[in-house]
Amino acid sequence: MSETILEIEGLTKTYPGGLKALDNVDLSIRKGEIFALLGPNGAGKTTLIGAVCGLVRPSAGTMRVFGEDLATNWRAARARIGLVPQELSTDMFEQVDRAVAYSRGLFGLRSDPARIEEILRSLSLWDKRKEQIRALSGGMKRRVLIAKALAHEPDLLFLDEPTAGVDVELRRDMWKLIGAMRERGVTIILTTHYIEEAEEMADRVGVIRQGRILMVDDKSALMSRLGRTEAIISLVEPLAELPASVAALPVTLTQDGRQICYRGGDGSGKGKAEVAALTKALTHAGIDFDGIDIHESSLEDIFVDLVEEREAGAA
């Protein structure tokens, strides 16, 4: 197993007012990986990032970054951590290149115009460097925030919902960019509430809900567990039993034989192919149907499954 860059143990955050946004979170992040924290709104993703980056005071727990305790060695640690926040918070009247240069200085590094130029170019911001930030579009503002976070050449980068509110094209760019940063050896922790995004970018995925980490796994393992296809085929005539030709598929007969229900697949497209095979087999067997409802399970379905699994495991 590769080196651990961030080790979180027993992290709990109770906000004033009593809301428990993080509940005894354990998480360890490996050096050089892209880790996606996947969870719905309000799951505690931003709170988790805030606790590591010094925006949120943890109620309990320990965090070790680069092998050092964050509570005592925060200066050295923070100098090597970058944060791109979820909100587009920028100094509206500041000029792009100055804002980025400021970030570098703030994190304790000497000014380095060549490095700043490289960062601005890699984010297609070079032409806009003399513009005031308020004159930029939302997508460009997010790039400025990324440039600011990269200005001090961090080893660990947090991206809080990097593609929220970003159009499809920019989202692709963002994914490429994140890939490029990983090439340079930056460890990246990003949050998202899109399964596809976690699937597209991450090496490993952690699923969080209501302040608890429900599971952490390699992306491929997670997708095969979670990426379910569900298809319901309405039959014209009720069936007493399934034909032998479809027995190998994960199908059941429901609604007193008036529906065939398929649940399977692994998120790689296998599910859709099997449903196609299923319909062919039914046609071949002379079983008529008048409706197919097929969908991929949503994040919410997955959470429900995971919670049920956990509770079954705990019982």
Binding site: C53, R78, P85, S89, M92
Partner: peptide, 11 residues
Amino acid sequence: TGTIYELLSAP
């Protein structure tokens, strides 16, 4: 404006 995040996350 929220830009204080940067100061708080800095060393």
